[in-house]
């Protein structure tokens, strides 16, 4: 494709974008949907049947990540009744993870669900970022680099789990706020994230992603009737490093069960595919149109001249 471009460099204006697309093409093949994640990437299996809503994970996260002081103490359970625009709590600029309560009629006790970044195998935030602020590390974390971020917030649009939040309160030092799997302080050294370590119920199990799936399957198999036969995150949006087991159907726990099984990037590929086509076909096509359109005019001029010539000859 590159050769074709350089042979046909008859358009100065097109060239700048050609270069951009040449890069785009290479990168695209790297980040294609076939990427199934780093083999030794770590993951966390969240067993919702175990969570008792103690919010220890929230407290641990707050201290580990030096997040701002919360609005209410972490042992204040009135937060479970909070609704913002009719929605339960979500991660924001003060918290990377939150626990929400779900009252499911068929279960006599309340259920809880912890949410945080799921650390997708092929993250939508990463693929949508035009300054490469996101990185999926071989350890499995999706980390964010505030130093290159321009604050366009496309990652927040792209994230199917509504995870990244923006520090709207800051004019001079804003940033995306998002769980980074405790990458800098823990994961990098092989340690589990702070929330996992803090969970008294071991509702969070930290292991290689592949082992998490194995353990999840084993729990489902060995406890008939206890779990729904599905590991949420095994395949959702191409797979996530954080996965969930639940005793009741996932939609009752606030999960989006209509998420595609393929990475979000696959939905964008239709457009990405036309880019090189437009870049290669358009110049020829429109210059062709131009020549056709103006030739008619020239012909006309020519014919008029001929006609006048003929007339003159006749005279």
């Amino acid at each position: 494709m590159k050769n074709l471009f350089s042979r046909r460099n008859f358009l100065k204006g097109g060239l700048a974008s050609t270069a951009a697309v040449a890069v785009l093409k290479n990168k695209e093949s790297d980040a294609s949907g076939d990427f199934t994640g780093y083999p030794d990437g770590m993951g966390v299996l969240v067993d919702l049947t175990r969570c008792v809503g103690c919010r220890s994970c929230e407290a641990a996260c707050n201290k580990e990540q030096s997040l701002p002081e919360p609005d209410k103490p972490f042992n204040d359970f009135s937060v479970f009744d909070e609704l913002h625009h009719g929605q339960k709590r979500r991660p924001d600029e003060k918290s990377y993870t939150v626990v929400n309560r779900y009252d499911v009629p068929e279960i006599d006790h309340p259920l809880f669900r912890k949410i945080q970044c799921n650390h997708c195998q092929e993250p939508a935030c990463l693929t949508s970022c035009f300054v490469n602020a996101y990185t999926k590390t071989p350890e499995g974390a999706v980390i964010y680099n505030v130093d290159v971020c321009v604050g366009c917030r496309t990652c927040m649009i792209a994230c199917p789990f509504y995870i990244p939040a923006f520090k709207y309160s800051s004019a001079f030092d804003p940033s995306i706020m998002k769980c980074i799997f405790c990458y800098d302080t823990r994961l990098k050294e092989g340690k589990p994230p702070a929330c996992v370590e803090a969970c008294p119920q071991e509702a969070l199990s930290f292991a290689k992603r592949t082992d998490c799936i194995e353990v999840g399957r084993q729990r489902i198999r060995q406890n008939p009737g206890k779990y729904v036969d599905h590991i949420y995150g095994e395949h959702e949006v191409g797979g996530t490093a954080w996965m969930y087991l639940s005793g009741v159907s996932f939609d009752k726990m606030g999960f989006d069960i209509h998420l595609p099984k393929e990475p979000i990037l696959n939905f964008v590929k239709d457009f990405l595919a036309i880019v090189p086509m437009v870049l290669t076909i358009w110049p020829g096509l429109f210059v062709g149109f131009h020549l056709l359109a103006t030739r008619k005019e020239e012909n006309k001029k020519h014919t008029i001249e001929q006609n006048t010539d003929e007339k003159e000859e006749q005279v």
Binding site: A20, L24, S128, C129, A133, V148, T154, V275
Partner: peptide
């Protein structure tokens, strides 16, 4: 910092 695989880059 270039992220050329993103639509917004385009």
């Amino acid at each position: 910092s270039l992220g050329p695989a993103a639509v917004l880059f385009l």
